[in-house]
Design a protein around this nucleic acid. Structure first.
Ligand SMILES: [Mn+2]
Ligand SMILES: [Mn+2]
Ligand SMILES: [Zn+2]
Ligand SMILES: [Zn+2]
Lengths: 145, 145
DNA sequence: TGTTTATTGCAACAGAATTGCAATATAACG
DNA sequence: CGTTATATTGCAATTCTGTTGCAATAAACA
C-alpha cells in the first residue's frame, strides 16, 4: 500500500461526490494485504475501530466505485483490491494449506471469452475464474513416506 | 426431466445406502428446470411440501453424491443438476434479462488450467468459470432508437 | 406385519447482513 | 474562521440464511 494508493483512493471517493471520512479511510487501509480477504477477517480487523455496519456499507460503496471486487475461493467470496490498486487476475487456491497463488496470465482467458462470446453474440463484462486443488507441498499423490 | 432421470436418481440414492423418501424425491423434482437455481428459489418452491431443513439436508446429500453441484452466477451461487444429468459446463449470464447461456466448449479451459497449474506445480481439482455481460437482445451498445 | 433405525419436521439457535434513527462529523458557504 | 446543511456513522433492533437437538415418523427388510 503506497502513498499513491491512498491518494488514488481519496481521489475516487471525493471525485464521486462522497465524503472522505475516518471510517472510510480506515476500512480501506484494512484491505492492504494483496491477498483476498474474507469479510469476516476484515470485520475482525476493524473491531473497536470501525463499526461492523459501516464496514459493510463502505465495502458496498467501494465495490460500486470499483475500488474492490469479489473473488470466489473455496466456494466462499472474499474481498480484493481491484484494478487501479491490484490488476485483475485469478487464483490457484490450495485445499490443503489455504495458500493462494496468483495466475498472471490473463490473455488466454480473455481470448477464450472473446471466442465463446462471439459465437453467442454476447457482450462480456466481467468474469469469475478460480481453481481449487493442491499445491506443491500438499499434493496428496506424493508418497513421501 | 425424463423417467430415466428419476430412475437414475433412485439408483444413486439406494445404491449408496440411503433411503428413498417422499421428501428426497420431491426435492429432486424441484431441480427439474435445467437452469441453475438459487437455494432461495428452491426453498420457495418446496414451501408447504418439504420442510426447509430437509431441503438443506438433502441438497447437501445430493452434492455429496454428485447429483447436484454449485455454479456461481451474478456473484451468488446456484444449484444445478450435474454430471449424469447435465455434463459439467459454464455459463454466459445476461445482466439485462437474466438469461443463462451454456458454454459447451470445456476443452479450452481444461487446457489452460493444465498449463498454469503445471507452471506452479499445482494439482487442480475443481474450477469455477462464469461470465457476466449482455446477451444479443440486451446489448446496451445497440443504438436501436 | 413387526422391528430397526434413517429421516423428517418442528422449535430453538447461531451468525451474517440489513434497516431505522438519533448523534456526529464532513464539506461547503458566508 | 464560524455556521449550516446533510452525508455518514454507530448503536439497537430486526431480518435472513443456515444449523442443531430431538421426538415423531416412515423406509427398509426380515
Ligand atoms: Mn490475487
Ligand atoms: Mn447450465
Ligand atoms: Zn497447500
Ligand atoms: Zn439478456
Amino acid at each position: 500500500m503506497s502513498a499513491d494508493d491512498i491518494n488514488n483512493f481519496r481521489q475516487i471517493i471525493t471525485s464521486n461526490g462522497y465524503r472522505l471520512t475516518r471510517a472510510r479511510e480506515a476500512t480501506f487501509r484494512l484491505l492492504v494485504s494483496s491477498e483476498p480477504q474474507s469479510v469476516a477477517k476484515i470485520l475482525a480487523k476493524a473491531k473497536g475501530t470501525v463499526d461492523r455496519v459501516s464496514v459493510y456499507r463502505n465495502l458496498e460503496l467501494f465495490e460500486k466505485l470499483g475500488i474492490v471486487h469479489r473473488v470466489y475461493i473455496g466456494w466462499k467470496h472474499k474481498i480484493e483490491l481491484s484494478d487501479d490498486f491490484v490488476k485483475h487476475h485469478h487464483h490457484l487456491s490450495c485445499l490443503g494449506c489455504g495458500k493462494i497463488i496468483d495466475i498472471e496470465d490473463e490473455s488466454h482467458i480473455d481470448e477464450f471469452i472473446e471466442h465463446v462470446a462471439a459465437r453467442a453474440d454476447f457482450a462480456p463484462r466481467r468474469h469469475i475464474f478460480e481453481v481449487d486443488g493442491y499445491c506443491h507441498d500438499c499434493k496428496p499423490t506424493k508418497t513421501t513416506r
